[in-house]
């Protein structure tokens, strides 16, 4: 095997990837809110892993932006209510509220990127299976799978309806607000009908409510190495003040 192929994290066992992602999330999200300086180092994980999975980091970053409105909504109260001055930069006083705001945004984006990477690389079904293998009850893993399947049905139906609408709108692309109600109503009905039929097809093939897992997962040395590399890194980033360390190093030189 060529080295390039070996470094492809698509070959990593979904369980290893899940484990690393969970440790990453716990380590990163447990950093105190005010320590934006510590948080930024955690960006190393998606920045390094994305190219290994043949995903451009810029793309991953852009895809993660969909959570931005939610993050702003969560974070915006910090600068409003917390006006304690933190430090001054070029004569402008920065409130600690703004620092936590930035910290929330970065955390949210990094967490989303890690999760997107996980699903992109292993696939959602494999993820549910990995959860199941790691001790998550089969019913929960199956429900996650169903929700995911339902969402993709929803998307497919929405696209079909969108195309049907475009085909009859004679180039007028504006979608009047008054049409949104019926559109959403129709979408819901169609999705329910479609899900009912999919469920029948699953039952016809002996589906009884729990996922039957395929035993195609093999934990290899590469998986152990993957975990042994990243997990200590996350712990170090969590408990060692890397920024301060670097500053001291620079001071010595």
């Amino acid at each position: 095997m060529k080295p390039a192929e070996r470094s492809h994290i698509g070959d990593i066992d979904p369980r290893a990837l899940l484990l690393v992602t969970v440790v990453y999330l716990v380590a990163m999200l447990s950093v105190p809110l005010q320590r934006t300086d510590m948080i930024i180092w955690f960006a190393a994980y998606p920045i390094i892993s994305a190219p290994l999975a043949h995903i451009a980091y810029e793309r991953l970053f852009r895809n993660s932006l969909f959570v931005l409105p939610l993050l702003v909504f969560i974070g915006i109260f910090n600068p409003i209510y917390d006006r304690t001055p933190a430090f001054a930069l070029f004569g402008i006083t920065i409130n600690s509220g703004w620092i936590s705001f930035i910290s929330i945004i970065i955390r949210g984006l990094l967490a989303t990127q890690a999760l997107l990477l996980l699903i992109r690389v292993s696939g959602f079904n494999e993820m549910c299976e990995a959860l199941h293998r790691l001790g998550c009850p089969g019913a929960i893993a199956t429900q996650l799978l169903m929700v995911y399947r339902y969402l993709s049905v929803l998307l497919e139906e929405a696209l079909t309806m969108q195309h049907a609408r475009q085909a009859r709108s004679y180039g007028k692309n504006s979608f009047k607000a008054s049409l949104w109600g019926p559109f959403v109503g129709q979408l819901l009905l169609r999705t329910i009908e479609r899900s009912r039929r999919i469920n029948m097809a699953m039952k016809a093939r002996g589906f009884n409510g729990t996922l039957s897992t395929s035993p195609n997962m093999h934990w290899t040395t590469a998986d152990t190495v993957y975990c042994l590399v990243w997990i200590p890194v996350f712990f170090s980033l969590r408990f060692i003040d890397v920024s301060a360390l670097l500053l001291t190093l620079f001071a010595y030189c």
Partner: peptide, 24 residues
């Protein structure tokens, strides 16, 4: 079923064909 899109729901053709036997 009449509509193949309702019948196929796994990530690959292979895992979809294996779905029934695995349930058995």
């Amino acid at each position: 079923f009449q509509n193949a899109d309702d019948q196929l729901f796994m990530p690959t053709v292979e895992t979809d064909v294996a779905f029934g036997p695995r349930n058995m």
